[in-house]
Design a protein around this nucleic acid. Structure first.
Lengths: 196, 196
DNA sequence: CGCCACATACCGACTGGTTAGTCTGCGCCG
DNA sequence: CGGCGCAGACTAACCAGTCGGTATGTGGCG
């Protein structure tokens, strides 16, 4: 009766997965709690046993993807390779992980305003930390002269992340370009834009 | 009693303006028809006198901004300046008009999925035409050798428009950069990324 | 000019349907 | 037997859209 394989995960994980898929497909508001629990093969009692509210569910989705991206970026930034290599790899990796979690990303930028104020502030703060770490890489390259300083670093970061966030609007896994190929091209564009 | 000056516009225009502001601020689903008519200083009878449904209202917002952007792009593309000048001006102009109509843009990419299937198809078709005209400029420059062909033209277009769409997420009119300054920087980034 | 017929513009109470969240209870496991 | 994990009916609120009604014009006709 349910769409997903029900037996292979714990109930909260199944609920989170179903919610992610449905939120990404039809948006937060258009997805009723009833639909989520049916897709997960349980009932509302189960959902409200594990989550405080529908908002909580959304917040969990956000927390998961934020944690993942922060970890990956840290990994690249801490390397001791030259800065242009570190930035290029970080820029490409964020594209790959975004494509690998396209549902989460779609939700992220489409449903942010559905979060309550305090959860929103928390998500925004984490997001800002992520941006700042990325920007630090750009600034490092600008100071050392391998990148042009013609454009302020924060604008460069917003430029790149803008196109990353937009991936959900056009990328299809069955398309002619693989995630790695797209990532390579977008990273190239960024690096060329930063050439002195 | 109402928030906006009521007397200076026709009722349908006031309704459209109120809807735009509210949709951008709280999203389509979180905005009730009651809120819209109160903000416009009328009642539901007036709204349903001029618009067929809440969807219609949203669709009108889309149609307005699509028409505007298409006109502006046509204007730049038809010039007989060298292609790098035409593309640069078009790329900068789309940033300026996006910033000047930030509310519309926010709605555009956040609430698309609220449109019914046939209206959605129509909006998408117009959007695609816009993209294709922009892409044609990039391809022209690539053929004539003033732009690098390292990156496929459609990816370049998605790269630029991605950051344009993302403007609504970070740009604030009171910030330190004017719309024209941001437009100049983003156009510079694009042109540098296209240098051979 | 006075008056009627009709239309356009708008009002606001009402309805049918939907939804998030609650609460009581039941079955299974330790 | 006791409590954890969950079922599912229930409720209170809300909301898009409807519909009969009202007011303000507008054109024709006697």
């Amino acid at each position: 009766m349910s769409t997903a394989a029900e037996g292979e995960c714990s109930v909260p994980q199944r609920l989170l997965a179903a919610a992610t898929r449905l939120f990404a497909g039809q948006g937060y508001d258009r997805t009723s709690v009833q639909e989520i629990v049916e897709a997960a093969g349980v009932t509302k009692g189960a959902l409200y046993h594990y989550f405080g509210s529908k908002d909580d569910l959304l917040h969990e989705v956000y927390a998961r993807v934020l944690r993942l991206q922060q970890e990956r970026l840290d990994c690249f930034a801490r390397s001791d390779a030259p800065v242009e290599k570190r930035l290029r790899e970080a820029a490409a990796d964020v594209v790959v992980t975004t494509i690998e979690n396209l549902d989460d990303t779609k939700i992220f930028f489409r449903s942010m305003h559905h979060l309550g104020p305090e959860k929103l502030a928390q998500v925004r703060a984490e997001r800002r930390r992520y941006h700042e770490r990325f920007r630090a890489l750009v600034e490092e390259g600008q100071r050392s002269g391998v990148f042009t300083s013609a454009t302020p670093a924060d604008l460069v970061v917003d430029y790149h992340f803008g196109s990353v966030h937009h991936l959900g609007a056009w990328y299809h896994p069955e398309g002619r370009l693989s995630a790695a190929q797209v990532a390579g091209h977008l990273a190239d564009l960024l690096m060329r834009a930063l050439r002195p």
